[in-house]
């Protein structure tokens, strides 16, 4: 901690005085490609913020009157995309651990929606993530991250496995590719817009 890093002009929000900031969450289980997707779209080098979380220790210590604590650090990474002179979009990558309630509330509050990254080889790992997104009442689209060699199941089987509603969009994407990532995001935003009609 200490002196401020020196930033370039491009690090600052263009036209910040008149901008409305909005955010979309990019969620998914461990190593599914969240950071890669954010990095491929973001106009800034993706950043991360940390929060130190503590948990009071279990009862053994309490009996002895000792206040034990367990500490862990959770990180979320994010990128930015200036949409226009009026709207700047932030993309927050959120790990699918549901135990960090406080962090999730922070992330979900006011979010436009969520893009859920899914690896077709590890569908079961996505169940808790989708539960969590639904729990926070966020509208979402599924982006099937197409890892090399991973056989893409047909969409119907995937929908069934993930127990999706009929109108929930499912797209495939390669998170390393800017256009592909942007297309997944566009699908989500179009869906969110449809939901307002």
């Amino acid at each position: 901690m200490g002196s401020a890093p020196s930033l370039g002009e491009r690090d600052y929000v263009r036209g910040g005085a008149t901008q409305t900031a909005v955010k979309i969450l990019v969620v998914g289980h461990f190593a599914v490609g969240k950071t890669t997707l954010i990095g491929s779209i973001s106009e800034i080098e993706p950043l991360s913020t940390e929060e130190t979380m503590t948990q009071a220790a279990e009862s053994v210590d309490d009996l002895k009157g000792v206040q034990g604590k367990t500490t862990t650090t959770v990180a979320m990474d994010f990128g930015r995309l200036t949409i226009s002179d009026r709207v700047v979009l932030y993309l927050f990558g959120t790990p699918g651990q549901q135990r960090f309630v406080q962090m999730w509330e922070d992330m979900a509050r006011g979010a436009l929606g969520a893009l859920v990254l899914v690896d077709p080889e590890r569908l079961a790992d996505s169940f808790p993530v989708i539960d969590l997104i639904e729990q926070y009442g966020l509208d979402y689209a599924i982006a099937v991250n197409h890892f090399d060699g991973a056989p893409l199941r047909d969409e119907r089987a995937l929908r069934e496995a993930l127990d999706l509603l009929d109108d929930t969009p499912v797209v495939t994407c390669d998170a390393r590719d800017e256009k592909s990532s942007a297309a997944a995001l566009t699908t989500l935003v179009r869906y969110l817009l449809d939901r307002t009609r």
Binding site: M1, G2, S3, A4, P5, L7, E9, D11, Y12, V13, G16, A17, Q19, A21, I44, L47, S48, T49, E50, E51, T52, F78, R80, Y90, F92, D106
Partner: peptide, 30 residues
């Protein structure tokens, strides 16, 4: 405080989100 000053310096050349300020300074969000 030196920390307040460094945040102020960081914000003096334009707009940044709270998350970006945390990201650039490596201070915890809280």
């Amino acid at each position: 405080s030196p920390e307040e000053q460094s945040l102020l310096d960081l914000c003096s050349a334009g707009y940044l989100s709270v998350a970006e300020i945390a990201g650039h300074t490596h201070f915890p969000l809280g």
